[in-house]
């Protein structure tokens, strides 16, 4: 449904490379995630795929249309929710939705089924201007506007950034339902924990793809043994574990540290920590998460 073939884009007359030689495919009906921090190149890819930006090199195809030659056809069959809120602040909820429906030559009624679940949550406020809405409500309205013409492909650029945990969960539940309607979704996020909600993900950093696979596949490819180390004094524990000469890498993960060791050095950690006064420290092998994998790939 989406094909990128060696896409490169530079800014500032070639001085800054935003995305470098990116190739991947998204299958029809797939929920595909671009995961990475600011500056990874996620927004540039979205803008190329939605025909708002020309690539320097490479080819990209969306719904069988070339992003350069067939740009007009792509624009009528995709929905795009940019990272920055871009609806009309002075129009009400209902006016915004009507506007987008009209621009795409349809009506709210025609595709109401698709947006119904989401629209009903904001309908009580349909006469409120978009500029006066909360973050969560803006996000829902923007999604409705991107969906109202029943697009074949939906592009969502960081829809959950700055949104609290509860609203983020709700948003991903909405995406799951849209996927069941057969819509292909390309979504980006800086939150690594959201990767598990995608069918496949590309981990991105500084314009390049570090890895593409299913979330499970990425986790299975983690090449080292990972341990969780805990004690009642997490802060000083971090210093001690970093100082231990058998430690290969050590990062704080909430209430524990995730640690990899130089070969055969994991057994000696607890005696070392005891000698440093960390008497209640524990260690156990764990399965890595996406964030562990991302950190590992950054190192390599």
């Amino acid at each position: 449904m989406i094909t990128l073939d060696h896409i490169t884009k530079t800014y500032n007359k070639g001085q800054f490379t935003a995305v470098k030689d990116i190739s991947f495919e998204v299958q029809p009906g797939e929920l595909f995630g671009l995961i990475g921090p600011d500056g990874a190149g996620k927004t540039t890819l979205f803008r190329i795929l939605t025909t708002l930006l020309l690539p320097d090199q490479g080819r990209a195809v969306v719904n069988n249309f070339d992003v350069v030659k067939d740009y007009a056809k792509i624009r009528s069959c995709v929905g795009y929710m940019p990272g920055r809120f871009s609806l009309y602040q002075d129009l009400t909820i209902e006016e915004n939705l009507n506007f987008f429906a009209t621009v795409f030559g349809t009506t709210i009624e025609e595709n109401y089924d698709l947006v119904k679940d989401i629209y009903q949550q904001i309908e009580p406020f349909k006469d409120r201007r978009a500029g006066k809405l909360s973050g969560g409500m803006k996000q829902k309205l923007a999604l409705c506007c991107a969906l109202i013409h029943k697009p074949a492909v939906l592009f969502l650029d960081e829809p959950t950034t700055g949104v609290d945990v509860v609203s983020r969960k709700e948003f991903w539940d909405m995406l799951k339902r849209l996927k069941q309607e057969g819509i292909t979704i390309l979504v980006s996020t800086p939150y690594m924990d959201e990767a598990n909600r995608c069918d496949r993900i590309a981990l991105m950093q500084k314009g390049s793809i570090l890895s593409i696979d299913t979330p499970d596949g990425i986790v299975k490819a983690f090449p080292e043994e990972l341990y969780a180390v805990r004690s009642s004094q997490t802060h000083s524990l971090l210093r001690e574990v970093r100082a231990y000469d058998g430690t290969d890498s050590c990062f704080a993960f909430g209430d524990s540290l995730h640690v990899t060791f130089k070969t055969g050095k994991s057994q000696d950690l607890l005696p070392y920590l005891k000698s440093k006064g960390q008497t209640d420290a524990t260690i156990q092998p764990i399965e890595p998460g996406i964030e562990d994998c991302f950190i590992h790939l950054l190192k390599g």
Binding site: P37, D38, T161, G162, P190, F251, A252, F294, L298
Partner: peptide, 13 residues
């Protein structure tokens, strides 16, 4: 106020 938004996991730490 949300000081670590948007950075990679290593920089965040």
């Amino acid at each position: 106020d949300e000081p670590t938004g948007g950075v990679d996991p290593v920089t965040r730490r």
